[in-house]
Design a protein around this nucleic acid. Structure first.
Lengths: 195, 195
DNA sequence: CCTATAATTGAATCATAATTCATTAAAGAT
DNA sequence: ATCTTTAATGAATTATGATTCAATTATAGG
């Protein structure tokens, strides 16, 4: 019996991230992904059901990691709620720091999955939001967060801000340094623009 | 000489907004847009060069309006910089309040245009950002905004937050009331989450 | 009431690229 | 060494839907 050589599944996923990032999901050709992965076009279908399935796998593993990391920092009792929010911001940026193409896919292609998979494209996304809620509630309980803000609104507010900043950074990592972004986002989230 | 009946160009644009919103740009069929606009498929091409040109027109008029409105409120000397930011938040929400499908197109399809039209898909977008800068600088000058925040970062921060909240609202306008969102965003932008 | 011009039509064309599948290759089992 | 099973291949198939264009229709001017 013939056995699989190397880890073609992974090669394909990594190639897909690059191609999705540079062409966008719809323009990305399976043949191009296969070429980058050093695999025949048909082989892609040995590993994934179809093009969307590739994207699904990218997002599933992405949100899985984010969820696991956020969970562990939410369980860290040494951190104050403010520090947990800061750590969450770092977590998001760190996840993409070494991989701008992944950031581009993350910020640009999720809406495609969300549209097709009405019932959620990955459980980890929901779970991630759930952990975010927990952090927020702790902050309210111990009095460090303002009661004037709705949890869900805050959640989408900060994720939207992070996403947009990540987009700009990924397009031009050099002229838009991540460390400065981090610092500013932490400040704004905590204190707002008011002097 | 035969003359144009009604305003088919506008009918097509409005139909396109609905179809793009419900199907997404790539799945949207020209034939479906034509049907909704009560026009033959071919007629669409009398008014627009191609599918992307339709999207371009939607965004051009959208950003044109946003720019004009923002400009006029930036020139309003009666408002403090904080009030101008608040008014900008209102402006964005007001632009979509009556038209959730337009909001969905706005939040989901701009990246497609940005990707293809490297040199900017509409001048009004750049101009809008320019006016935002002006407001920000005024706030710095008169001492009402914190000097700890970089202008460009603030700009993408708040636009990202607005965009994400608009997305959620457009998907479910009833359970996610715009007025509450407005109020929370204004508060967060100004004061942050800190108690 | 003609005629010229421009608007409108929608079926046919055309391009693209996802997916399939018959074929070939490799590796473990006998 | 041969056989069997699974992996890998990439050319051929197929589906889709954007765009074109020859035919038709409506209006204004003469």
């Amino acid at each position: 019996m013939r056995t699989k050589e190397g880890d073609k599944g992974k090669d394909i996923l990594e190639a897909a991230i690059k191609v999705f990032a540079s062409e966008g999901y719809h323009r990305a050709k399976i043949s191009k992904i296969a070429e980058l992965a050093n695999v025949a076009t048909g082989s892609v279908y040995q590993y994934y059901n179809n093009k969307e399935d590739i994207l699904l796998n990218i997002f599933d593993s992405l949100w899985r990691n984010l969820y696991i990391e956020l969970k562990s920092l939410a369980e860290n009792n040494v951190l104050t709620p403010h520090e947990q929010i800061d750590a969450m911001i770092d977590l998001v940026f760190d996840s993409f720091n070494e991989n701008p193409p992944l950031a581009l896919v993350f910020v640009s292609e999720q809406h495609h999955l969300a549209r097709n998979n009405k019932e959620g494209f990955t459980d980890y996304y929901e779970k991630f939001l759930g952990v975010g809620e927990k952090i927020f509630k702790n902050g309210l309980r111990d009095g460090s967060f303002s009661g004037n803000v709705d949890m869900k609104i805050f959640r989408f507010y900060i994720l939207g801000a992070l996403r947009n900043l990540l987009t700009q950074w990924a397009h031009d990592p050099k002229s838009f340094p991540l460390n400065k972004i981090r610092q500013n986002v932490k400040f704004l989230t905590k204190n707002g623009i008011k002097k």
